[in-house]
Simulated scan of single mutants.
Amino acid sequence: MTDLTDQVAIVTGASRGIGRATALLLAMQGAKVVCVARSADELEEVAHKTRGLAIPADVSDADDAQNVADEALRHFGRLDILVCNAGVGSFNLLEHFSATEWDRMFDVNVKGTFLLCKAVVPHFKAQRSGHIVGIASDVARRTFEHGTAYGASKFAQDAVLASLRKEVRPHGVKVSTIYPGLVDTYFNDSLPGSPDAEKTHLKPSDVAQAVRYVLEAPAHVVVDELMLHPLTQEW
């Protein structure tokens, strides 16, 4: 298994939910974590627990995204892992979506992934190592009512990661994609911990364990896709 000790990992959307669980777990495995999110107060709390670096940023802003990579390199002197987890969602009939809602989902879910990857890939290629893990969704592989905007953004994010995987593999860089089903988080303004969610949803820690699994796979093992099934909590 690959040792995560002292590897430097950027985790976006680290203030809550999947990102927070991932940041905490990677820190427990010895990684040095760069916690990225827009909410500075919650981010500082996570960074304190991980003994890592907090960088408040909007991943959909090109300058912010580049600054995250630059600050991580300045602070730690190296960069090994990028977990693209930041995401937003809204669900409604197509005719009830506003253009603003559509743009925000594509800005965060797709453009945010693109910009962070763009910021770290040159460094990863130069050192001939690095691992990008994208937290997509099972709706990147299926469609459902009220999911036109969110589903489209996740299909697009999946395409970005799949194409990038082919571009960087010859340079010794890995790209893995995780497709969780329903996860019990604050996503879509919901509150975690309801009795129903306990029965039907994954926990953020389940997804974090999947991230750990792909990161710790031996160098010669490539895990391109990992689907998480919420009803059975198996993967």
Rank of each mutant, 00 (worst) to 15 (best):
N67A: 14
G17Y: 08
T148L: 07
T100G: 08
L73T: 09
L93E: 13
V46R: 01
S98P: 02
N92T: 04
R74C: 14
D70K: 10
V211N: 06
D3T: 14
S15E: 08
E198W: 02
H229A: 08
A126S: 15
Q209T: 07
G147R: 06
L73C: 11
F144Q: 11
G30Q: 08
H48Y: 07
E71H: 05
Q157W: 01
D70A: 10
I55M: 02
G147T: 11
V34K: 01
A149N: 11
P192E: 05
D224N: 15
L182G: 14
L191R: 14
V8I: 02
N85V: 00
T185W: 08
V139F: 14
R20G: 05
R128C: 09
S190C: 13
V33M: 12
I135Q: 03
A62K: 10
C84G: 06
A65M: 07
L228G: 03
P180Q: 02
Q209F: 01
A62C: 05
M28D: 14
A65W: 05
N85L: 00
A21I: 01
T100L: 13
V120Q: 02
A47Y: 10
A23N: 10
E45I: 15
F144N: 11
W235E: 11
R165G: 04
T185C: 04
R142N: 09
D6H: 12
L215A: 01
T50L: 09
A37L: 00
H131R: 07
L231Y: 12
R74W: 11
A86G: 10
A57G: 05
G130W: 04
D206K: 02
A47C: 11
V8W: 00
G134R: 00
K154C: 01
E45R: 15
I10V: 10
V8P: 01
N67M: 15
T177Y: 02
R128Q: 14
G134I: 03
S190E: 15
Q66M: 06
F106N: 10
A197M: 14
R38Y: 02
L82T: 13
R212V: 03
F106Y: 15
A208H: 07
I135A: 04
V133E: 10
N92S: 13
Y213Q: 11
I135W: 01
L79Q: 02
G52Y: 02
D6P: 04
K118Q: 15
V160P: 05
T100F: 05
A197T: 12
G77Q: 09
V222A: 11
V223R: 01
K203F: 13
A23P: 12
P195F: 00
V108F: 03
H171R: 04
V133L: 09
R20S: 10
G19A: 03
G193V: 04
G30N: 08
L73Q: 13
K118D: 13
Q66H: 11
I10L: 03
A217F: 00
P56D: 11
L182W: 12
A14C: 05
N92K: 12
D184H: 08
P230T: 08
S90R: 12
F187C: 04
M28T: 14
K203N: 12
A156R: 07
L228I: 03
Q29H: 12
A197E: 12
V83W: 03
